[in-house]
Amino acid sequence: MFDWTTMGVVFALIGAVLAALMGGIGSAIGVGMTGQAAAGVVTEDPSKFGKVLILQLLPGTQGIYGLLIGFVTLTQIGVLGGDANMSLAKGLLYFAACLPMAIVGMVSAKWQAKASVASISLVAKKPDQFGKSMIFPAMVETYAVLALLISILAITSIGGLQV
């Protein structure tokens, strides 16, 4: 007879993996898109390399946030040392706690990349507007940071719950 109560750690691990995986996928797509735009600008004007490199890297942060959530979750659930036994309810809570970062990370990385590509076009034509061009993709970052915050708060609080 299959015992569901032993599956807590499995769900918790799936949550950690999804946070790292989806954030990473989003960032890989995003940085790839912005990389193409950056290469296009540098082909015509190599002096803009520094500016477009920063804009290229902006959608890369979601991958880092995902990694951070994954790492914190692994530490909390005892996979990286300690006791990995937990109830099914607790495992599901960890799983749910990882979802904001996983989903928002992937979606925001792609949309941030689109904003970055547009900003790279802006820098190509008006390099003196670099400061303003950074703000547009940075606005999308807000929501990735909010997702990171809620995931972190949830993951670090679950350990103290009696479930």
């Binding site: 735009a37 296009g40 600008v41 015509e44 590509v117 790279i120």
Partner: peptide, 17 residues
């Protein structure tokens, strides 16, 4: 829509000329 990202970025630089 994404297959022209590189090309459009080059066009933006070229438009300066």
């Amino acid at each position: 829509t994404e297959e022209y990202i590189y090309a459009v970025a080059r066009v933006r630089s070229k438009e300066l000329g």
